[in-house]
Computed example of a mutant assay.
Amino acid sequence: MRALFAALIVVLGVAGAWLGYEIYRQQESTSEEPYGVAFNLIDHNGQPITEDAFRGHPTAIFFGFTHCPEICPTTLYEMNGWFEALGDEGKNIKAYFITIDPERDTPEFLRDYITGVTDRVVGITGEPDAVRAMARGFNIYFKRIDTEDGDYTMDHTASVILLDSHGRFRKTIAYGEDTESAISKLRDLAGT
């Protein structure tokens, strides 16, 4: 019985190691491809913008909405602080705020919202179906939540996604992550 139990442990260990290797190999192969999907939207100045905006330089992207009560304004404020702390080290990183509420977030409204906090972030909006397809293509969770007063809010992924200069996924900065950790991740990203 002990021999059977030991053999079972060995088989499970080998299977676990193989599964771990396959997951690692798959992640490595997909990490060489640009992250997300092709899109054709507009920036907060009303100019067309595509996935090409995420190439040729490191990129930080955040999906949110202007009527957000806490997470989005906090993240914008923190991003501004991170870039200020990085100074010239982070000057090549481009940052984008992609709305998940395009019905309310017109280019003008998005521009006023963002530039009231920072000049380092460009807003992205567009036709609702195109915005939603882009968010889904970047594996962003979002859901409209109706409120009792007849209005609505949005539940959504609250991480900043970091892409290298080829548009490949590198890391995320979680909402509420320690400032030094976030700055360190951006410093590493700046060299990619």
Rank of each mutant, 00 (worst) to 15 (best):
H156V: 00
S29L: 11
L86C: 11
A182F: 04
G13T: 10
H156D: 03
I9L: 14
Y24N: 07
E148V: 12
A133C: 04
I100V: 15
G46I: 12
T115S: 11
T172R: 08
Q26E: 14
T99Q: 13
E103D: 14
V37Q: 03
Y21G: 03
D52M: 01
T147G: 04
R144T: 15
D146A: 06
L186F: 13
R55E: 08
A135T: 11
Y21E: 06
W82R: 00
A135L: 05
T157W: 09
E148F: 10
T75R: 01
H166L: 15
F109Q: 13
P69S: 14
E177Y: 09
W82V: 08
F83D: 04
Y77M: 11
K171V: 05
G13N: 09
Y175K: 00
N45C: 00
L110C: 07
F142R: 01
Y77R: 09
D188K: 00
D112F: 11
K185L: 04
P107C: 01
A85C: 03
A135K: 00
A15F: 12
P107I: 09
A53P: 05
D101F: 08
E127C: 11
I23E: 10
A6N: 10
E28A: 11
I124H: 05
T106R: 05
R136E: 15
D119H: 04
Q47H: 09
W82K: 00
D88S: 03
F97W: 15
V122D: 12
Y35I: 01
T172M: 13
A38G: 02
T66H: 02
I183G: 04
I93G: 07
E108A: 12
I114Q: 03
S159Y: 10
L110K: 07
L19K: 01
L110R: 12
E78V: 07
T106N: 12
D129T: 08
T75M: 07
I124C: 05
D178P: 06
Q47M: 07
D52A: 06
D105Q: 06
P73E: 13
L162G: 02
T192E: 13
T66A: 03
T99K: 03
D188T: 07
S181E: 13
